[in-house]
Design a protein around this nucleic acid. Structure first.
Length: 297
DNA sequence: GCGACAG
DNA sequence: ATCTTGTCGC
């Protein structure tokens, strides 16, 4: 849980333009392909996990991406809540380890920090990032993967809160949002069955990580003449009702850092436990809420 | 000026 | 995100 890039800290005292250029730098440092350091299949498949838990050959285990200590990957869920006075944010982190067909809570930490700036769409990490980093400092575990409440690559500058913190920690990270910030679903996202997904592709609202420099033409980075919009995330149906009357909206999942969009969606589905939110984020949300109540009382 | 957007 | 009761539909 060491901070590898303190130079990229979400300083709330920066000007808006400085925040945005920092996000462009973060997007250039971000890796939107799989570089997890472990096999993500270990998260979803109890059988693959059981096999990996008792590797016949140590070298084989290393090749398959097993942790050096032979344990299964640690996955952290991160979520924020706000104190009653509205002046402070509370960030909660719950660390899970796959155990059998369920998960074991390895650690829970939280931190409270003052809120410096209001919520501005696109600049969420500058409002909540300080609290998250304070909570990360409290961790004694070293998670292999982080799930954040909010967007990652689905962001105007492809540097949402999951990307910002993931790059700072140089840890694999995923953004799990309940609403779409930008980008376009390639198909309707209504009436999806549990387990289904629809790609979200970039549009003109999303700057490309390449020519993010000085484009005054308004096409903001992508070649409007030859639109080759990349898939920046997925609408993921983590839960659905059977009857036609009641329905659940899909989650909007995107890579934070060192994860592809497809794997990010796979991971979220692997942590679906009958609730809309994946277990790490759901437990972090619950923990944040009752920690907030205790602080208020 | 209007649009328009995570938590 | 947060302030809030009941209420409709699983």
């Amino acid at each position: 849980m060491s901070i590898r890039r303190p130079d990229l800290a979400p300083d709330p005292s920066l000007s808006r333009a400085e925040m945005e250029s920092l996000q462009r730098e973060i997007a250039r440092s971000a890796v939107f392909t799989d570089d997890l350091g472990f096999d993500p299949a270990l998260l979803g498949d109890p059988i693959a996990r059981a096999t990996a838990d008792a590797p016949s050959d140590p070298d084989e285990a290393a090749d398959s991406g097993d942790r050096t200590d032979g344990t299964t990957p640690l996955v952290a869920g991160v979520d924020q809540s706000f104190l009653l006075d509205q002046d402070r944010a509370l960030s909660a982190i719950v660390v899970l380890r796959p155990a059998g067909s369920e998960w074991e809570v390895v650690e829970r930490v939280h931190a409270v920090t003052p809120l410096e700036i209001p919520y501005i769409p696109g600049l969420l990490s500058f409002r909540e990032g300080g609290a998250i980093l304070a909570a990360v400092e409290e961790l004694s575990a070293d998670p292999d993967l982080y799930l954040f409440d909010g967007s990652g690559r689905i962001h105007f500058r492809q540097a949402g809160i999951a990307t910002h913190i993931g790059v700072m920690l140089d840890a694999p990270s995923i953004g799990v949002a309940k609403n779409l910030l930008c980008g376009d679903p390639v198909d309707s996202t209504e009436g999806l069955a549990a387990g289904e997904r629809v790609p979200i592709e970039a549009n003109a609202d999303v700057e490309g990580p390449d020519d993010i420099a000085g484009d005054e033409t308004g096409c903001e980075g992508h070649d409007a003449a030859d639109p080759d919009w990349p898939t920046i995330g997925y609408a993921v149906q983590s839960k659905q009702y059977d009857s036609p009357n009641r329905h659940v909206n899909p989650l909007l999942v995107s890579p934070g850092h060192r994860v592809s969009a497809a794997t990010a969606a796979d991971v979220v589905l692997a942590f679906a436990a009958g609730y809309k939110l994946p277990e790490p984020t759901r437990l972090a949300d619950a923990y944040a809420n009752d920690a907030t109540k205790k602080h208020d009382s």
